[in-house]
């Protein structure tokens, strides 16, 4: 047997996943708790109560919070979870993971030693991007299972196939914050650069969407909001929007490819 044949498959991805599995489980529990807190409230809020609540809120706030579809089960699930807390929490995990992948590793002085071993810089970026994808995909599976489990008891009336498509599209959205954070770290060499880049994409997308919702003359902002691409078409009710799906997927790939180029062409560890 050659030495190469004995070498494990995707060693950096495996290590990244093993190093974070405890925190991944904690995040899964947090996401499930949020689902368990919000979704069961739907039956008591649907109907006249909801109408009253919506009537009492200023129209701008309803639009900013994406509550205009909240009277349906799918709209409720999207507005309360996928559009708000679920988006924030999942984005936080993705951005943290992406910023840690290169920037934080370099800050801590660990990347230098890894690169002195038998890996390429391209491999480091790609394997850690894969770990980011797998970690987020696992959390999405948890979310999907959680929503499905609560679907009946909470009288949401969601279709399992449509929900799957929505979660897949949602995955690409939160992943974008993560790949932006990874790119920021690969370019700047610090965790803070990654976190800033990830937050810019996630929060920026959210804000552009909220502003775009306010009226005809601001609607152009939707075009620049990944958040709007992913959630503007009400995916929980309508399923995947292929142009948004491929657009988000392509942007994720682009960010990772740029991260590869950035890391390959600079000094590691600074002066």
């Amino acid at each position: 047997m050659t030495p190469a044949a004995r070498r494990p498959f995707l060693p950096l991805t495996g290590k990244a996943l093993l190093d974070t599995w405890r925190s991944t489980l904690v995040w899964a529990l947090v996401l499930l708790s949020v689902l368990a807190l919000y979704l069961p409230l739907y039956p008591s809020m649907a109907g006249p109560e909801m109408e009253k609540l919506l009537a009492s809120l200023p129209e701008e706030l309803i639009r900013a919070l994406n509550y205009d579809q909240i009277a349906t089960g799918a709209g409720y699930a999207q507005a309360t979870f996928f559009g708000l807390l679920g988006f924030m929490l999942s984005s936080a995990v993705a951005i943290g993971t992406g910023a840690a992948a290169i920037g934080e590793d370099e800050d801590a002085g660990l990347l230098e030693l890894t690169l002195a071993h038998g890996v390429t810089r391209t491999q480091v970026v790609l394997e850690r991007s894969l770990a980011l994808l797998l970690r987020m995909a696992f959390l999405m599976v948890v979310i999907y299972a959680g929503v499905l489990a609560l679907n009946g008891p909470s009288e949401l009336g969601l279709d399992a196939g449509t929900l799957f498509q929505a979660v897949a599209q949602f995955l690409l959205l939160v992943l974008l914050g993560g790949t932006a954070a990874l790119l920021g770290g690969a370019v700047g060499g610090h965790r803070t650069h990654g976190t800033a880049a990830g937050a810019l994409v996630a929060v920026g997308g959210y804000v552009l969407n909220a502003l775009g919702n306010q009226g005809e003359d601001l609607q152009w902002m939707h075009a620049f909001s990944p958040y709007h691409w992913a959630l503007g078409g009400q995916p929980v009710a309508n399923g995947v929007d292929w142009s948004a799906f491929w657009g988000l997927a392509g942007l994720n790939v682009l960010f990772v490819a740029l991260a590869v180029l950035a890391l390959r062409h600079r000094d590691v560890g600074g002066a």
């Binding site: 004995r6 070498r7 060693p11 950096l12 190093d19 002085g109 230098e112 030693l113 071993h117």
Partner: peptide
């Protein structure tokens, strides 16, 4: 290679760290 400013992961045993480096440089 031994870096001059050696930084090591903190929450890991020496054995697992060596296993990992062996996996990529073995």
């Amino acid at each position: 290679y031994l870096p001059g400013e050696l930084a090591l992961e903190r929450r890991i045993t020496g054995r697992r760290m060596m296993d990992h480096f062996a996996a990529i440089s073995g």
